[in-house]
Design a protein around this nucleic acid. Structure first.
Lengths: 124, 124
DNA sequence: TTTAGTGTATTATAATACATAGTACAGTTA
DNA sequence: TAACTGTACTATGTATTATAATACACTAAA
């Protein structure tokens, strides 16, 4: 269900947190569903358990999962009150600048973003 | 014309490269316009000359500026053939995931991107 | 030629982030 | 008790970012 690209420049724990969130968005994981333990997940992904632990801690901080020491980790509800959207938009801005500089029009850019949206939501 | 936020987690040289590109996009800088020398720019921004040099080298690598040893640095033509757009889109994807998770709809997201576009293009 | 101003290159230091390794501890469940 | 949870800690290695301090090659003007 989860795959890590070890050659990517994106940190492993970030790859994992994003994929968990995507699975929740797609409905592949629902409230109460358990995640594999830190050690099992690490074994499956062939990464260090500490790296998985870091990803789980980040997911809990964002309210995506609930962890209970000794028991395990389960998926939480999708949040109702939106997170810090403006901070996310600020991070996107430099990339939009790059696209404009590459000659992309306003319409092309918004269409590409729409395509990304569809790809994330799509059930394989 | 350029401002650096020293408290930002975005590297200084990245802040500078993006602002130069934005100035070109807005038409505030045109082909042949000179950029301040590495040392002058560093003094104005109150950063180390090496950091400015790194930004200039990155801008030259991207074809934004032309540097001539002993003479100075000037703005290049806007590129006609687009750069690696797919790589940029790949970097945007995790942020779109975050926005979806925060409850944003497809329409809301594409509109927000459009707003960013307008803000970048806007002449103050 | 000399001088001052360009960009460039190198070495060193410091701080931080990322990932791994190994070990230990606290809590839960069968 | 035994085996499993998550958590905490130290240590190591690598990479990135930024600064500092020089040094070098080239250009333009005095």
């Amino acid at each position: 269900m989860f795959k890590i690209d070890i050659r990517s420049s994106v940190p492993i724990y970030e790859q994992l947190t994003e994929q968990v969130k995507r699975a929740v968005i797609r409905g592949l994981l629902k409230k109460g569903d358990p995640l594999p333990s830190v050690r099992k997940m690490a074994a499956r992904l062939e990464v260090n358990p500490n790296t998985v632990a870091k990803a789980y801690q980040e997911l809990e901080r964002q309210g995506v999962i609930i962890t209970i020491r000794g028991k395990g980790t389960i998926i939480n509800d999708m949040p109702e009150n939106p997170a810090d959207v403006s901070a996310v938009l600020a991070k996107i801005r430099p990339f939009i600048t790059e696209l404009i500089y590459a000659g992309k029009t306003r319409k092309e850019i918004t269409e590409e973003i729409g395509n990304i949206y569809d790809e994330i939501m799509k059930q394989r």
